[in-house]
């Protein structure tokens, strides 16, 4: 088993000595490396190879788990590639002060602007995490980057069109989704300005933008590759967790909760977190949950693109666990509140 870390000297060549101290400090602060994840990964890999064809892997439940897990991964890979390529490009090609020039100077104003800018990133939620990360690295205030992170998967044209198709004849649902998602993204950005602490974020020393004397294209390629491998590993972890719930939660529990208006909102919000349906498809799933109130289905569509198991895994990998836990919890609460308020007014 080759060890996975061997590049202090490389770091030295890539980064000037001036940026080294934070890195050293980080090593002290950092928790023990995720050896558990490594052990699990290797164990599973060995199991897959050694036991191919053995009965338990082909048990219907295990087979369904493998199918769903692989499906989530395969479906997300193109979007993750898009996100990490964009992130690499922002790092290597975009001038450092572009974003600070374009966004309003005051962070409180930059938040809603970044939230609305989320509409331009097409595709699923997996793409937005690496992009938001690269925005922070390029000096965008984290609050604005988080507003972008939350709104991008929910309000882009593809997702809104899918919502309109899934709910024919109720344009109010599309409007409610747009407004509730934007409101959640903005509130979370402001909340970060108010309560957020830098130390929850994993310190960023890695991407420092274009270095004179290095080929921009090589910087892009290596940054892209690194981000993809990093995020991809967490994607697989998240897909495993989501597939577990997807296969084990019996759909009959749906009927238990559909009766109560309050519980049903909370239940569908929780379902959105554990099912990890991609944001382009979640409107169709929501449309099929016919026993539930429109507000509960709105909550499903607002929470889903912002918080789900694979996103939590991606965020934990990108920004650190301390951040992911707090941020996801707060986002869920704000998203449910926004859905109830806006759904109550519009639907």
């Amino acid at each position: 088993m080759p060890k996975t870390d061997e590049l202090l000297d490389v770091t030295e060549t890539v980064f000037p000595a001036a940026v080294r101290p934070p890195e050293r400090r980080r090593r002290v602060l950092r928790r023990p490396p995720p050896t558990t994840a490594l052990v699990i990964a290797l164990g599973l890999a060995a199991a897959v190879l050694a036991l191919s064809g053995t009965p338990w892997l082909n048990d219907p439940a295990v087979a369904a788990w493998r199918t769903v897990c692989l499906a989530i991964t395969v479906q997300a890979l193109p979007f993750l590639l898009l996100g990490t390529a964009l992130s690499g490009a922002i790092n290597a090609f975009v001038p450092a002060d572009l974003f600070t020039k374009v966004l309003p100077k005051r962070p409180a104003l930059a938040v809603p602007v970044a939230g609305i800018a989320g509409a331009v990133l097409p595709g699923c939620e997996c793409a937005s995490v690496p992009v938001a990360n690269s925005l922070i690295r390029r000096g965008v205030t984290p609050a604005a980057a988080f507003a972008f992170l939350l709104s991008a998967p929910a309000i882009n044209p593809i997702v809104l069109t899918a919502t309109a198709v899934a709910f024919p004849g109720s344009p109010a649902m599309v409007l409610a989704r747009l407004l509730a998602s934007l409101a959640t993204a903005a509130v979370m950005g402001w909340l970060w300005l108010w309560l957020g602490r830098e130390e929850w974020l994993r310190p960023v020393v890695r991407h420092t933008g274009h270095q004179p004397g290095h080929s921009r294209f090589t910087e892009f390629r290596l940054g892209f590759q690194h981000d993809f491998l990093h995020a991809g590993g967490f994607l697989v972890l998240g897909a495993m967790a989501a597939a577990t719930f997807n296969v084990t939660v019996p759909h009959s529990v749906l009927d238990t909760f559909s009766g109560s208006p309050w519980l049903s909102v909370l239940f569908l919000a929780a379902l959105a977190v554990v099912l990890a349906v991609c944001s382009e498809a979640d409107a169709f799933v929501a449309a099929s949950l016919t026993g539930f109130s429109p507000t509960a289905r709105l909550a499903f569509m607002v929470v889903g693109p912002m918080v789900d198991l694979k996103l939590i895994a991606l965020q934990a990998g990108t920004f650190g666990r301390a951040f992911a836990v707090r941020f996801s919890t707060a986002t869920t609460v704000v998203a449910v509140a926004a859905s109830v308020l806006i759904g109550g007014a519009l639907l």
């Binding site: 996975t4 870390d5 994840a37 491998l229």
Partner: peptide, 30 residues
């Protein structure tokens, strides 16, 4: 760089990938 202390973690530079990336072998092989 193999003789480094292996305790500290990955992502300092572009040319290594973190350990979590090993998980990607699962879908690839599958």
């Amino acid at each position: 760089h193999d003789d480094h202390d292996h305790e500290h973690d990955h992502d300092h530079g572009h040319s290594t990938a973190p350990r979590i990336a090993w998980l990607l072998f699962l879908p690839a092989l599958s």
